[in-house]
Nucleic acid binder design. Structure first.
Lengths: 210, 210, 210, 210
DNA sequence: GATGAATGAGTATTCATTCAT
DNA sequence: TATGAATGAATACTCATTCAT
């Protein structure tokens, strides 16, 4: 078992090593332009080895999303679990959590969108697909929960919590993508943070009842 | 002259025919997965013919953006030109305009983002590139103008008009992309419209001073 | 018949117009890289029109050779026909004739070689093929005739006249191609003439008996 | 080390295998008409494999020239290095060397000419380009050296050694090309050898002083 | 005759994936 | 397990040739 375990750990280490390399390469070139050769080189492995750990290119890409989704859920649940904090506070903390997640892996937004391609989904193993769906659902549920409380207590405007959660996520991803497209992010992280602040301030003010 | 003119029109008709086909195919498969063969088949033409009207795949794709950008600018300028309307009204009309633009061509957001790729830009003819830059700039300028007025009159919160315009666009594109990724748009246009309304309402309330 | 004749002449004029353009384009780009579109543009005609006068690209190219071969034969026969001139004189005049032919159309050498490609021959009409073979044979025969006389009179070394004729032609084409490959011709026509002189001088001295 | 070495040798073997196939195919069809598919088939490999060993079609073609140039230089330098041999002898040996080179690879002439195309040069890697230029230069230099000696000793006519070297090469390539174009080479190697002899004899006699 | 738009077969090149070692 | 050489299907783009007008 000790041996079994060590092997298991070693295997996980390799997966991580590949994913780190893949993240860098996908991040720089995008999914289509990045080649498995690129990733193998970045990971200092041979192309063949990649296929020992990931079924194919799509699954390697998707597994990146899985990791970030895990982190996302962790952070959001942590916000939700704080005792004694009102929806107001939680919303603010949620904003910060989202920013941290983005810092942890700026690809998060692109990942989330790429994942939806039916072509991509077709190539994933059912197990991975299931995990991703599960994590996405839980994350959105946790965000909704915050809004549910706020609406229930009359602190937030009377919209369906899921709609508010969707809108919250939209604002966040919209800002990221917009700034990315304007090439403003690479030049200045401060600018991104500031713009996100403005966006959230507006969102926050707009969300409050009365 | 009649002949010259008719030929010109015929040529334009073909361009449109190809663009309509391209829009469908790109829309379904995305830029990388769509092949020129696909588009030719959809347009009921041979692959070679596409190249009589568009320099290459990138330029065909970009020309789709050009058309939508033209329509976008038209609508925004129209909003701005209304006499006697306050920033409040204009903002509401701007929201409606954006929705119309989206209905005119749902690919608008994806187009805008794809366009930024430096690889893409490299392959465009300087003329087309110039036109696109010009139109994008003008559109964003027109949106900023509305916010400039609102801020100047103390109706909107005191943020830089360009920042507000960016945020406005972010909210819009974020909602679209988010719902697209959830495959909710195809299933229900009403749901999109409603979600956009919620998002804009929140944005609108958040933007108002006091 | 007047009408018939005028049409005939008009048709010939067009053929010439196309051939002049083709010569320029082939000369600049070589056979494979030159496109029918290029030639049509140079001739200020449409691509389709080219096919009214020439069966295909190969035949257009071959017809250029035909013209130059006609001129070549004319010049060589003229040298041969001079009364009272000895083989010595004739050889010198032959050298000059060759140079004139080259000036008339520098493509002559390349043409002669390209023509041999079995792929090319396959695409020629039997009639054109026959004409070309006929002209080539006659030209080489006429050159051989000069050497035949020289050998018979003991003025030239005792080699088979055809071998000498082949060698003569080889020296000429060899110099042209060699200088072309060194890009020396375009830069200086004088250099070509001088090098040809040296080559012919050597040839001349080597050819003389004793 | 043993492994490293064996791999290296295996790799070189593959390069040779491809080059042999390429030589055959280019030889038969010429550069433009030969396809990479043809070559792959001849080499009993897949098209993709060719690109593991050669950057592109141009470079594969050029590498054929490189090999023949290496052999050419080897032979010429060997002639030049013979102690006690006069320019006369060396010239004769040079003739034989040239013939051997031709037998080693009959494509030599065509290769040399194709190489000059600026289009071709553009597609070569700088390293390969440099090697080719270097070898060509050295070969011509070595030939010139023989003539330089002959002229200095008053054995050869008083022309610039480089001019004589150019002429020598011209005669050689001219004969080859001319006979090739007449399809005489394939039918009878003896005929080529004889014609080359005649040509070189003439050249030799013409080159001698007095 | 002349046109030039349309064709579609042809080709170099790339790259995800496999498999013998 | 790991390798990386080999594969071969896939694809953007070109261009000689045709044919309706």
């Amino acid at each position: 078992m000790g041996i079994q375990e060590r092997k298991e750990r070693e295997k996980e280490r390799r997966r991580q090593q590949i994913m780190v390399a893949a993240k860098r390469v996908f991040s720089e070139k995008g999914f289509s332009k990045a080649t498995m050769e690129d990733i193998a080189q970045e990971a200092e492995l041979s192309p063949g080895t990649l296929y020992l750990y990931f079924k194919n290119k799509e699954e390697l890409y998707a597994s990146l999303s899985l990791r970030i989704l895990q982190y996302l859920l962790l952070r959001i649940e942590h916000v939700n679990a704080v005792k004694g904090a009102g929806p107001d506070d939680k919303l603010k903390q949620l904003m910060e959590a989202m920013y941290d997640v983005y810092e942890f892996d700026p690809l998060i937004i692109i990942n989330m969108f790429h994942l939806q391609s039916s072509e991509t989904l077709r190539n994933l193993s059912p197990q991975l697909l299931e995990e991703i769906k599960d994590l996405s659902g839980k994350s959105m549920g946790a965000i909704s929960q915050i809004f549910k409380e706020g609406v229930a207590k009359g602190i937030f405007i009377n919209h369906h919590p899921v709609a508010l959660a969707d809108t919250f996520w939209s604002v966040f991803s919209g800002v990221i993508l917009w700034l990315t497209s304007k090439k403003l992010i690479d030049e200045s992280k401060d600018f991104l943070k500031e713009t996100l602040s403005v966006a959230f301030e507006i969102f926050y003010k707009g969300v409050k009842a009365k």
